[in-house]
Design a protein around this nucleic acid. Sequence first.
DNA 1: AACCTGACTTCGG
DNA 2: TCCGAAGCCAGGT
Length: 108
Amino acid sequence: MTEFTSKLLEIITNIPYGKVTTYGRVAEIAGNPRAARQVSWTLRAYSNKYNLPWHRIINSKGTISLKRGQGFELQKSLLEEEGILVMENGRVDLREYLWNGDSHQKFE
DNA sequence: AACCTGACTTCGG
DNA sequence: TCCGAAGCCAGGT
């Protein structure tokens, strides 16, 4: 795999329990803010092999990208198991659960 | 090399 | 807020 991909894996592994982040944010931290699509590709390719917390990654709109019947339900339940509130339409409140990659979270 | 395809994003209307 | 279009990245054909 490319160096960029291994960087993505490292970042994904660091997403804390109970938090979510976006494809674009992961790509940005890895150094290429425009490689969001590559993040989704990477998840599909390595989630099983490296046991990645893939469910903690959602899109920039704050919703689950997977379609119903194709992983949506699984991702929703995995997030809820971590105490994350997920609307029926797959929306998550990013203001509350977003992990920015920083050590300190924003304070309201 | 060309073309298609996504678990994406941003921007306009 | 909610689409649609256009831009983008890399792997598969």
